[in-house]
Design a protein around this nucleic acid. Structure first.
Lengths: 103, 103
DNA sequence: GATATATTTCCAATATTCTAGAAATACCGA
DNA sequence: TCGGTATTTCTAGAATATTGGAAATATATC
């Protein structure tokens, strides 16, 4: 994962409302949850929720699938897993990518 | 870790410049690096870098220690580790914190 | 086609972030 | 105390994010 992609995903998760949305999607798992039900849970305006979801979708953390008139949202687990791997490998110890260290 | 703390830390890392700063701090490890040297590496204005560092310090991801006229910056590994743990446990699978799941 | 439900897009207001020059502050050595 | 280096704080402009009401769009059903 490139630094800019990681930063975009971290930024998407770095908003309390969006992080709460994402956690809800994680909790409901593979079955997903409709935008409307998510809105009822979060208590935000429909347009606000839609904007937040667009941001999460844009960076690949969330997917949507239409079922008739409703849109089912799901957490995209592999992308989150990749982000955690990035943080672990690139940001948690100096073992990886050691080249030009200097104090 | 509370959701708001996690969100604040994710937001701090969710800026390409700050993520690059943090990665540099990770690379240099425990010995740390002076603000001035960091500035030379990043190529940003001193005041800009200072603001970014303040944000990282504010959320606990970075620490500073004065050595004479220079300030040594270090990655605060335990905090990052806690953030990764939060993401892994709260945002990577539905195994934890299962309570009110519904499609 | 008409109607109803679900969701997005448009638009705008307010708030926040990002950037950096200039001035101020902190510390040291002579 | 003066001068020098290191860094922050002040200030401000431009860009971006957040929020939500209203209108538009998508889909289904009758």
């Amino acid at each position: 994962m490139k630094l800019d992609d990681a930063a975009a995903r971290l930024e998407a998760l770095g908003n309390p409302t969006r992080l709460a949305i994402y956690r809800t999607l994680v909790k409901v798992g593979e079955r997903g949850i409709a935008v409307g039900k998510l809105q009822a849970r979060m208590g935000a305006a429909a347009s606000t929720l839609s904007h937040h979801l667009q941001k999460l979708i844009q960076v690949g953390l969330v997917t949507q699938e239409r079922q008739a008139t409703t849109l089912i949202c799901r957490a995209n687990f592999p992308v989150m897993s990749g982000l955690v791997t990035y943080l672990t490998e690139e940001c948690c110890s100096e073992e990886k990518s050691c080249s030009a260290n200097a104090a």
